[in-house]
């Protein structure tokens, strides 16, 4: 078995080195496709991640209308804690909110762009249980003096709709990408198979079994797939790290994952897809040629 494996690997490697330009075309095609595939996966993963983190927040922000006076605010201060499900309500003056915001995102240099404080006064409300969040948010919205209500769940729902839409579009794009890559790989390896038709004929004539003829080409496809996937991974890792660092600087409130298990899973999927694409490419191309014999 190992003897066979060694022979297949040796022949496959020879096939790649002899294939030259054709092997290069197949490898680069797989690399580009897997890179795009990887970008999609990383975006999806981060969006899901963001959605998850929003869902776990139990805070509701109730923004007070500019027209509201002191008495209205005092009234709200009393009525909000009365709402069922509210655990804590904290008034946040717009001045302190603005100060805090500037401190948190000092990198944005907001003072250069904004002359006045754009934030309204608000109440930060904590609910005792996530299931109350809709009801509490609705009741808050109905209160006199409250202009707008926002909460993580609402944002998460909107995000979920966006992710769902992107998943559908992504699935179509990935399907087209994977199938066209497979076709290119099949045809590229087929060219190397045609170039080695003489060899295949000789193998068949001296009594080599069909599997023995097939496997070097299947291995060749796998090597090309693996090589394409590894190159895609290198570019993906470099690109993702640069993008993540820039995101952290420009959109600091967006959590970007750099070294989690899920990211490694994305990389593993890329690697396995590359090998699988190569395997299928090699298998289809040599089967086609053997069938024509």
């Amino acid at each position: 078995m190992f003897k066979r494996l060694g022979y297949f690997c040796r022949e496959a490697w020879q096939g790649i080195t002899r294939g030259g330009l054709m092997a290069f075309v197949a490898t680069s095609t797989i690399m580009v496709s897997l890179f795009i595939f990887g970008v999609f996966l990383l975006i999806f993963f981060n969006l899901y991640n963001l959605m998850g983190s929003l869902n776990t927040r139990l805070d509701i922000m109730a923004y007070i209308a500019d027209s509201a006076g002191h008495s209205d605010v005092d009234l709200l201060r009393m009525s909000i804690p009365q709402i069922a499900g509210v655990r804590k309500a904290e008034f946040i003056a717009k001045e302190s909110a603005w100060r805090q915001f500037r401190e948190n995102y000092s990198g944005l240099r907001l003072d250069e762009f904004l002359d006045a404080n754009p934030l309204p006064d608000a109440f930060k409300i904590e609910v005792s249980d996530l299931s109350y969040i809709h009801v509490v948010a609705n009741k808050l919205g109905a209160l006199e003096g409250i202009e707008d209500v926002s909460y993580g769940g609402d944002l998460a729902e909107r995000m979920a709709a966006l992710v769902k839409m992107m998943t559908l579009a992504g699935a179509v794009i990935i399907f087209l990408l994977v199938s066209s890559t497979l076709m290119i790989v099949v045809n590229t390896i087929r060219l190397t198979v045609i170039a080695r038709e003489n060899e295949i004929n000789i193998m068949a004539l001296v009594g080599a079994s069909r599997s023995f003829i097939k496997y070097p080409f299947i291995f060749e496809g796998m090597f090309i797939g693996l090589l394409g996937a590894l190159l895609a991974l290198v570019f993906l890792k470099i690109g993702y790290n640069i993008a993540a660092l820039n995101m952290a600087r420009l959109i600091p409130f967006m959590p970007v994952n750099l070294h989690s298990r899920e990211i490694n899973l994305v990389y593993l999927i890329i690697l396995l897809t590359g090998v699988a694409l190569g395997w299928l490419g090699g298998y289809f191309s040599v089967s086609k040629t053997l069938k024509a014999e």
Binding site: K3, R4, Y7, R18, N198, E199, N201, I202, M203, L205, V206, G207, A208, F212, I213
Partner: peptide, 21 residues
């Protein structure tokens, strides 16, 4: 002849037995 040009004489002959493992 149908010889493989990238293999030596001995390798060409051996090829017939290699594929028979």
């Amino acid at each position: 002849y149908k010889l493989l040009k990238y293999k030596t004489v001995a390798e060409n002959v051996a090829f017939a037995l290699e594929v028979l493992e």
